[in-house]
Amino acid sequence: MARRKSWWRGTGLRIAVFVVGVAPAGLLLLDGLRGSLGANPIETLQHTTGDWSLRFVLAALAVTPLRRLFGWGFLAPHRRTLGLFAFFYVCLHLGTYVGLDLFFDWSVIAEDIFKRPYITAGFTGFLCMLPLAITSTRGWQRRLGRRWVQLHRLAYVAGIAGSVHYLWLTKADLLSPLVYTVILATLLGTRLWFRYARRTTRPARSLS
């Protein structure tokens, strides 16, 4: 019984995370091949990859609060995979924009990045995730030591940048970007709460 449980929470969960990570890209590819990405396929690719990037950022940021709140330590080994899937989808998202939407028109792309706040925000998110993806290996983790933890707090900035990107590009119906923003705020808020709780309970513990 104990062995089965650990299989589900170990290898089983690893397979599940991988399948959920690959499925959206696989479905997009499938839809693309049979020409069912809708009337505006480039827009469909942009929106879908953007959605999934933000979803995986939130999933990665949810690992620590879930572990702390519910003791779900078995999630921790999958945080890196979730983060790398977020990076995978942000690359597809940016690649679609640069290569398909604007067809490598660098002057327009540069103008967008500097002049259009929502694109500035989105690009900031990408820049935050780049060093995290590069230093996601155990080797880099060892080499950077304590600074690795500090560097990887950029994930918070990436999450905020992604949500702001979505909020700022939306025309009128803010419901969907607000759902992401509220989830992100909850995840970052629990971190602040943990920090505050730790600070206030420490003296009490030393007394006993």
Binding site: A16, A23, L27, D31, L37, G38, T44, T48, W52
Partner: peptide
């Protein structure tokens, strides 16, 4: 059920069939 939910969620944003 879990797999189906994941696939449904993944399929939903793409164009309706």
């Amino acid at each position: 059920a879990g797999g189906a939910a994941a696939f449904a969620a993944a399929g939903a944003p793409t164009a309706s069939r």
